[in-house]
C-alpha cells in the first residue's frame, strides 16, 4: 500500500500488461457484438472490427419490422414494476422483523429465510399450473407474480434495519407519527444504501430473467427481451447480424446505467453479496 511513492517496478508493468490483456479478452465478445450489428450480411464474416461501409440498417429493421421495441418495453415495465414492489414489501417485512417484538417473529423469519433454499426451478411447474388455473398464462401479471417479494430481500433489509437505532423510531413515536409513516419517512431513508443494492440486484435479475418468462409467455406481444432473442433464429428466422443487433440492444441499457452509476453498482453488489 505504498504505491504512491514507489517507483514503477518492472513487476508492476508485467502485472498491468497481463491484467490489460485479460480486460481486453473480457470485452471482446461485447465489442464484436456491437461491431457485427453495424455490418451488412456479407461482411460479418470478416474479422475487421469496423466495416468499410458501416450501416444502421440492422437497427432500423429491428425496430421497424420485428417486435423488438415491444419486447424492450415489456422488459423495462416488468423489471421496474417488480423492483418497486420488491423494494416496498421486502423492506416492510425486513423492518417489521427487525424492529417489532411480537410472538411468532422468529418463526416467520425462519420460514421466509427457508424459501431461499428452494430453487426457482422447483416452483416453476406449480406456478405454471397456478397461472393456468387463474388464467394468468401469457399475461403481464403472470410474468410478474412470482417475483414481487423475495426472501433474499427480506433477509438483506432485516440485517440493515437492525443497524438503525431504536431511538430514532421512538423519538418519532413520541412526536405522534403513525407507524406506517415512521417506516416510510424515518426508517427507509436510513437504509438507502441497502435499498439501492436491492434495487440493482432486482432490476438486473428481472431484466435478464429467462426461464420463467420463457415458460409463461407464448405470444410475441408478451415476450420479454431474452425470450424474444431466443425466438429470433427460430420463429422469426433471423441472420447472425440481426441476432447480434438484438443482443446489442438488450445489453445497452445495463451498460448505460453502469457508466453513470458505476460506483453505486459495484458498492451495491458488494453490499448485497456479502450481507446476503
Amino acid at each position: 500500500m505504498t504505491d504512491n511513492k514507489a517507483p514503477i517496478s518492472p513487476k508492476k508493468i508485467i502485472i498491468w500488461t497481463f491484467l490489460f490483456i485479460g480486460a481486453v479478452i473480457m470485452m471482446t465478445p461485447i465489442i464484436f457484438m456491437f461491431s457485427a450489428s453495424f455490418k451488412y450480411n456479407d461482411q460479418i464474416y470478416e474479422l475487421a472490427l469496423i466495416s468499410s461501409e458501416p450501416t444502421l440498417s440492422n437497427y432500423i429493421y429491428l425496430f421497424e419490422n420485428t417486435e423488438f421495441l415491444r419486447w424492450f418495453l415489456n422488459s423495462i415495465s416488468v423489471a421496474l414494476a417488480t423492483t418497486i414492489s420488491v423494494l416496498f414489501f421486502d423492506s416492510l417485512v425486513g423492518y417489521t422483523l427487525a424492529k417489532f417484538k411480537f410472538k411468532g417473529r422468529k418463526i416467520v423469519f425462519v420460514l421466509i429465510l427457508s424459501t431461499l433454499m428452494i430453487p426457482t426451478e422447483m416452483l416453476v411447474i406449480p406456478w405454471y399450473i397456478l397461472a393456468r388455473d387463474l388464467g394468468l398464462l401469457d399475461s403481464y401479471i403472470g410474468l410478474i407474480f412470482p417475483g414481487i417479494m423475495t426472501g433474499f430481500g427480506v433477509f438483506l433489509m432485516k440485517q440493515f434495519f437492525e443497524g438503525v437505532p431504536d431511538d430514532y423510531l421512538d423519538a418519532a413515536r413520541i412526536d405522534g407519527v403513525g407507524e406506517f409513516r415512521i417506516f416510510t419517512d424515518v426508517a427507509m431513508p436510513l437504509v438507502v444504501p441497502a435499498l439501492s443494492a436491492l434495487a440493482i440486484f432486482t432490476f438486473l435479475g428481472n431484466w435478464t430473467a429467462f426461464l420463467w418468462p420463457l415458460i409463461v409467455t407464448s405470444s410475441a406481444e408478451i415476450y420479454t427481451v431474452p425470450v424474444g432473442l431466443a425466438s429470433f433464429s427460430g420463429e422469426f428466422q433471423s441472420e447472425w447480424e440481426m441476432i447480434m443487433t438484438g443482443a446489442a440492444v438488450a445489453t445497452l441499457p445495463t451498460l448505460i446505467i453502469f457508466l453513470f452509476l458505476q460506483r453505486y453498482i459495484i458498492r451495491g453488489v458488494i453490499l448485497g453479496g456479502l450481507k446476503g
Binding site: Y40, N41, T55, S57, I60, Y61, Q237, M242
Partner: peptide, 15 residues
C-alpha cells in the same frame, strides 16, 4: 415457409 425469409431484404442488399 422459408420463401419469405429468402426474399426478405434489408438496406436494399439481397444479391
Amino acid at each position: 415457409f422459408v420463401l419469405s425469409f429468402l426474399k426478405r431484404t434489408r438496406g436494399g442488399r439481397n444479391r
